[in-house]
């Protein structure tokens, strides 16, 4: 069965055809659209490595059937910031060494962007920890991740007074 959807992917609206209703958003991105920045860690919604924004909200691409996405807006790590620039969350991850191997990092960053947009955590380290608990980091860079989300939140909400590094987490 051949399917076609119109998707606004990283800001560009395009018609996307694929051959199989079984295709998930994750496999569509990785295997059909040459966007391998989104990672497969468990393929079952249990690790968060495949987190992308769908209509501005963080979600696991591995449990999203591509066919359901007609008209949706999808943002992946490749489209988070214009070429040659970094989103404040990306910069904060570098500043706070919020990753080691880097494999879960695209998912962590997209999840952090989603969390900040949700507006529930603010810079409270405990709420950030809870809010980021859907993203497993086996290198266990959690200490830096919490600091990075604090820093990015500050710079996005109060860009003028943003401290370079976060509070003690």
């Amino acid at each position: 069965m051949s399917l076609s959807i119109t998707l606004t992917l990283n800001g560009v609206t395009r018609a996307i055809a694929f051959e199989d209703a079984r295709v998930t958003l994750l496999d569509l991105l990785r295997d059909r659209l040459d966007l391998p920045g989104t990672k497969k860690g468990c393929d079952r919604g249990q690790c968060g490595a495949c987190t992308v924004l769908v209509n501005g909200r963080r979600t696991t691409a591995c449990l999203t059937l591509a066919a359901t996405l007609e008209g949706a807006e999808v943002t992946t790590i490749e489209g988070l910031a214009p070429e040659g620039t970094l989103h404040p969350v990306q910069q904060a991850f570098i500043d706070n060494d919020a990753f080691q191997c880097g494999y879960c990092t695209p998912g962590q960053i997209m999840s952090a962007v989603g969390l900040i947009a949700e507006g529930r955590a603010g810079t409270d380290p405990e709420r950030i920890r809870e809010g980021m608990s859907g993203n497993i980091c086996r290198c266990a860079a959690y200490h830096g991740i919490t600091l990075a989300v604090q820093q990015a939140t500050r710079s996005m909400v109060h860009p003028d007074t943003a401290a370079k590094t976060g509070d003690a987490a």
């Binding site: 497969k40 992946t76 990306q90 570098i94 880097g102 494999y103």
Partner: peptide
């Protein structure tokens, strides 16, 4: 110093084995 592979990793540009096709 911060990681030299930092930008590649935060932008999704770092190619892991299964990212090659």
């Amino acid at each position: 110093v911060t990681r030299r592979d930092g930008i590649a990793k935060v932008t999704g540009a770092a190619a892991f084995a299964a990212d090659t096709a």
